[in-house]
């Protein structure tokens, strides 16, 4: 029949304190308390010793390899590679802005030209000339008439009787 192990007189918090003590993290009263427990109880002393030894075994891990001689150089190369797309992005943004400004300039030019054409006087078209043909043909007579009222008076039937009507 196997004998069940004697439970250690340490709860989780006390064990954490013990480890903290071994790590030199406890000072003053807390450290003295742990020291007293270690001195008084051989089981706690053995616990502390085994935890300490387990920690010390880590010293026997092989020293990790040093970084490669070109580590710094390669890091800077990676950095440059990262920055390159950034430069392209900036350039792209500039080109886009330039393009937009160009478009705006062309649109303004077209709008200005159309406005100028719309506002400036222009030669009458064929349709307008046909519509006003009679007026144009008789322009020299109209020029002699001083006013529109005078013309209306001439049109009065009493002035020339039936002669005006063919």
């Amino acid at each position: 029949m196997s004998q069940s192990p004697t439970p250690l007189p340490l709860n989780e918090q006390e064990r954490a304190d013990l480890v903290a003590y071994l790590d030199g993290e406890l000072t003053g009263e807390a450290a003295r308390e742990i020291e007293a427990k270690i001195n008084l109880d051989p089981r706690i002393r053995a616990e502390a010793e085994s935890l300490k030894r387990a920690w010390e075994l880590l010293d026997f891990l092989p020293k990790p390899p040093e970084p490669a001689a070109d580590f710094t150089e390669r890091t800077l190369e990676r950095l440059q590679a990262l920055q390159r797309p950034a430069t392209h992005q900036v350039l792209g943004r500039w080109l886009l802005a330039l393009g937009l400004w160009g478009l705006l300039l062309v649109a303004s030019g077209v709008a200005g030209y159309q406005g100028f054409r719309w506002l400036s006087p222009r030669e009458p078209g064929e349709k307008e000339l046909l519509r006003d043909l009679r007026l144009i043909e008789n322009k020299r007579y109209y020029d002699r008439i001083e006013s529109f009222e005078f013309l209306q008076q001439l049109d009065h039937p009493d002035l020339f009787g039936d002669e005006t009507n063919p």
């Binding site: 989780e12 480890v19 920690w55």
Partner: peptide, 16 residues
């Protein structure tokens, strides 16, 4: 951290 290191050390002790 104190708790983490305490448990880590116990695990190391168990493993070694």
């Amino acid at each position: 951290v104190k708790s983490l290191l305490s448990r880590a050390r116990m695990n190391l002790r168990a493993a070694l």
